[in-house]
Nucleic acid binder design. Structure first.
Length: 638
RNA sequence: GCCGAUGUGGCUCAGUGGUAGAGCAGCUCACUCGUAAUGAGCAGGUCGUGGGUUCGACUCCCACCAUCGGCUCCA
């Protein structure tokens, strides 16, 4: 029989040859590295026997596909270990995920960190036993019989929901699990894994269902890959904005205001720098800026649909026996500004920005530092325009967002979210809006993913997911196209024909939330902000108290040039003060002693590169002010 | 909201039925120092909050709050 290989070559084999044997035939080394195969586009086990005419590709352990096989098998090995150690455990699901794998268990006993160690040891034993992993197909009814008699109620539910009349089981030693596969050929092939954490998870992700216990772990082809991954986790922990926010005295959170962050003087500097930058770019892009109130009357929210569609997330209050709501979004307020005067078609588009503080009631368990809060400042804008301007305006926003992310060194990914279940407005309007967004993305040649049903209740949206320098992604910017609010609020402009027409609206953000964006920046830069964002840009360190006067004169000169600068004239050794500044991630340390004071110079030490030697004060001022003005500095990709 | 864990001075953590301890930070003093921690001294805590058990609770029990890891949700 004939088998086609990825290079297009065709080989002749006997009927019944397995993928593994084909790999061996090609080369023993390939066989050794093989973990699975891809036959006619389907991932299969090494034991799979392709049919005549099939095309076969060997999946080797250094590939992304291999990783998911390895992790899936690791999940099975973990389930086997748990089954050995804890009688009566019911197995739910155990897939491979982006960074590893998990398995959900239903068990009376609550897993503890010590249990993880024991489970890991048992897994090691299973690996050492090198149990062959074999696949068996059984009829659905036999499968149901099998899991029912074993009391595996979750498997029973899974099988009942599966299409087709046959299902497959994989077994290794005494352990057997419903699974589509593929899997490693034996447990001995599992070389590098680690269990990481225990968490609760609802059966099938539905909060009405029973809460199961999930164990997360990760696995790699090689020990060294696992170590790199664990080091990355460590690195992420070091960069945690909650820790750095405390260390660098940027912000704090208090029991008195869960989810309501407090910004300290250092944090406010970062905030204001970002806002300055934002204002500059928006003014240049033709935006005006407004400010609207935080508390507004119920009738406005009824009109906008928030009262009906968004109430669970809103805070309320009463004023003079009337219901008011704390705004969860800025649009209704912004619309009142639009309505406060007549608009000509000549005025459009109106690009109206607002740094609006919104409050949303998030469930208590979801709060997380600055990433998930209950009050945040959206860098919002609403663009009111004619229909013929829609495409250009969307493209304009895409370009603006792009230029912002570029400045911080964030690569990003784009997603298009379509009509959700709780939408308001007709299908026609939704189709129109969705097509417009799609059209703009395509006009810009951007790749995007579609998120069915994930739009806002009043319109579809484009989301920007940016990637920080250790590879995590965050949703920040969004562009939402809205035909519904203009209708609800009866927005109009006067057209060329002298008659009233309906404008279209775009809601958009770049940072998303200032709070979250600052959190992301903290982690992205690991707290070492570029000079323009640094709370303290330079610290002058006199060698002894003989040099205090000179140090202060240098600091004065820097301050006059607009540099945020401090003198550390504490009675401590030079090394101590250097270390202190270094830990506070001050970009420049300026050591001044006899040599410097006699020549009006500073000895420059950079946060990144250490001692740079002496330069005249004047030239340092030029260097640092240039760096600030151009807002340079993008972190190294790791 | 749900499951699990945690909560001790500004920070990091030890303590575990007999009314709290370290390091760092802070303050004072000495040292006057050249690129990541000089030394000595002082001060600082109703042990998350509220109940209960006990002769006695930071320690045991209950409730609540907050935080952390997830689930769900989302900027």
């Amino acid at each position: 029989m004939r088998i086609t290989l990825p290079d297009g070559s065709v080989k002749e084999y006997n009927q019944g040859i397995s993928v593994g044997e084909i790999a061996l035939d090609i080369s023993p080394r390939l066989r050794k590295a093989a973990v699975a195969g891809i036959v006619d586009g389907e991932m299969v086990d090494l034991s799979y026997q392709p049919r005549d005419g099939a095309s076969v590709k060997i999946v080797t352990e250094d590939t992304e596909e291999a990783l998911s096989v390895i992790r899936h098998s690791a999940a099975h090995v973990m389930a086997q270990a748990v089954s050995r150690l804890f009688g009566g455990v019911k197995l739910a699901i155990g897939p491979a995920i982006d960074d590893g794998f998990y398995y959900d268990f239903d068990l009376e006993h609550r897993f503890t960190p010590e249990d993880l160690e024991a489970i890991e040891k048992e897994m090691q034993r299973i690996v050492e036993q090198n149990l062959p992993i074999t696949r068996a197909e059984v009829s659905k009814s036999a499968a149901l019989e099998k899991v029912r008699s074993a009391g595996q109620i979750y498997k029973e539910e899974l099988i009942s929901d599966l299409e087709g009349d046959h299902v497959s089981f994989y077994s290794q030693g005494e352990f057997e699990d419903l699974c589509r596969g593929p899997h490693l050929e034996s447990t001995g092939r599992l070389k590098a894994f680690k269990l990481l954490s225990i968490a609760g998870a609802y059966w099938r992700g539905d909060e009405r269902n029973k809460m199961l216990q999930r164990i997360y772990g990760t696995a790699f082809a090689k020990r060294s890959d696992l170590e790199v991954h664990l080091a990355r986790l460590e690195e992420a922990k070091k960069r945690d904005h909650r820790k750095l926010g405390k260390d660098l005295d940027l912000f704090s959170l208090h029991e008195e205001g869960p989810g309501f962050p407090f910004f300290h003087p250092n944090g406010v500097i970062v905030w204001n720098e970002l806002v300055n930058y934002w204002r500059e770019k928006h003014a240049a892009a033709g935006y005006v800026e407004i400010k609207t109130p935080i508390v507004l009357n119920r009738s406005l929210w009824e009109n906008s649909g928030h009262w009906e569609k968004y109430r669970e997330n809103m805070y309320f209050t009463q004023i003079d026996e009337q219901d008011f709501a704390v705004k969860p979004m800025n649009c209704p307020g912004g619309i009142l500004v639009y309505q406060s005067s007549l608009h000509s078609y000549r005025d459009l588009p109106i690009r109206c920005a607002e740094l609006g503080l919104v409050h949303r009631h998030e469930k208590s368990g979801t709060l997380h530092g600055l990433f998930r809060v209950r009050a945040f400042t959206q860098d919002d804008a609403h663009i009111y325009m004619r229909r013929d301007q829609v495409q250009d305006e969307i493209i304009g926003v895409i370009d603006l967002v792009d230029s912002f992310y570029r400045a911080f060194g964030f690569p990003y990914r784009v997603e298009l979210s379509t009509k959700p279940e709780n939408a308001i407005g007709s299908d026609d309007i939704w189709d129109l809006a969705t097509d417009a967004l799609r059209g703009a993305l395509e006009a810009r040649g951007l790749d995007y993913r579609v998120n069915e049903g994930d739009g806002a209740f009043y319109g579809p949206k484009i989301d920007f997911h940016l990637e920080d320098c250790i590879g995590r992604t965050w949703q920040c910017g969004t562009i939402q196209l809205d035909f519904v609010m203009p209708e609800r609020f009866d927005l109009t402009y006067v057209g060329e024909d002298g008659r009233k027409h309906r404008p279209v609206m775009i809601h958009r953000t770049v940072f998303g939330s200032l709070e979250r964006f600052i959190g992301i920046l903290i982690e992205h830069y690991a707290g070492a902000f570029p000079v323009w964002l640094s709370p303290v840009q330079a610290v002058v360190i006199p060698v002894t108290d003989m040099h205090h006067a000179y140090a202060h004169s240098v600091a004065r000169e820097l301050a006059e040039a607009g540099v945020r600068c401090r003198v550390d004239d504490r009675n401590e050794k030079l090394g101590y003060r250097i270390r202190d500044a270094q830990l506070l991630k001050v970009p420049y340390m300026l050591v001044v002693g006899d040599n410097e004071s006699s020549s009006r110079s500073v000895s420059v030490r950079s946060r990144e590169h250490g001692d740079r030697g002496s330069v005249p004060v004047e030239s340092f001022v030029k260097t640092i002010t240039d760096e600030i003005r151009t807002r340079s500095g993008v972190p190294q990709k790791r």
